[in-house]
Computed example of a mutant assay.
Amino acid sequence: MLHDVKVIAFDIDGTLYPQMRFNVRILFHFLTHLKFYFNFWQVRKALRRCAPLPDLFRYQAILLSERLHCTTPEAEKYLQDYVYGPYPEIFKKVKPYKNVKETFIKLKEAGYKVAILSDFPPEQKGDIWGVLPYCDGVYGAEHIGALKPSKYTFGIMAKELGFPLQNILYVGNNKKCDVDGPRNAGMKTAYLLPWWRRLLHIPLKEADICFKNYRQFMDIVLK
């Protein structure tokens, strides 16, 4: 199943670290700006259905300004103040899943190309818990112009890496964005099981690989 995989690409949020660790740290900030975040996530939902955009950041601000009844520059400032500005400091206090860095090292030693593709700017996470030096490519869907699960985003990543889509295994924790999206684009997929699937032993049939932790992921891929 994995004999033709040459590249292993990872999502970040909820995949390299537990989403709950971030949510707990941002809870007060989120509740303080509840109106903004409600409208922001509605805008992100709409953007996932859009065709590729030449300037996704600008279009996002325009959509948000319409929902908040403010000017586009004001919406851009809200985005910077509430999303793009504060997150880097928060992520300095968030720890990744166990064995994440070891996984990247072992994959490189085994001869795989390793990449990251995230909806939010990867630079928000600094050196991404030490894995950045082991990456052959790091991509933000916002900069590409289309959020996951757009096939366009996965296609651009594949083109930049110089490999056909069928030679790439994408690893993530979200069925729609990290399994359905890359699968529809022609990639293979690996799904990090949520706690309830692990507890009930329910795999995700649409994914080529299901794993409960990174030790198991390495056992599957490097066997």
Rank of each mutant, 00 (worst) to 15 (best):
K151T: 13
V7K: 12
D219N: 05
E102R: 05
R49W: 13
L169M: 02
Y152W: 06
P182I: 09
P86E: 09
F104K: 06
V100M: 00
K92Q: 14
Q124G: 11
K45G: 05
Q80W: 11
S150N: 03
T32I: 10
G145H: 05
L200K: 00
E123Y: 10
N39V: 01
P121F: 09
K108R: 13
Y37V: 10
L165A: 13
G155Y: 01
F163Q: 09
T71R: 05
L79A: 10
A207L: 00
V5S: 02
K92I: 09
E123S: 11
L79Y: 08
M187K: 11
L34E: 09
G172E: 10
L200I: 01
I26T: 04
H33M: 04
Y139L: 14
K125A: 05
A61Y: 13
P149D: 08
D13C: 02
G162N: 07
H3Q: 15
D180A: 08
A61G: 13
L199G: 00
L64M: 14
I26D: 04
R67M: 15
F22Y: 04
Y112D: 01
L169K: 01
I105A: 01
R48T: 12
F120P: 09
P88W: 15
K108N: 07
A9E: 06
E206F: 02
K101R: 06
L199A: 07
D11P: 12
E89C: 10
K101F: 07
M1A: 00
N167E: 06
N184Q: 14
I128K: 04
E160F: 05
V100E: 05
K6I: 09
A75M: 13
I8M: 03
R58T: 11
R58E: 15
V138K: 05
E76G: 04
L222S: 09
F36T: 10
D136H: 08
M187Q: 04
Q60C: 13
R49K: 15
H33T: 04
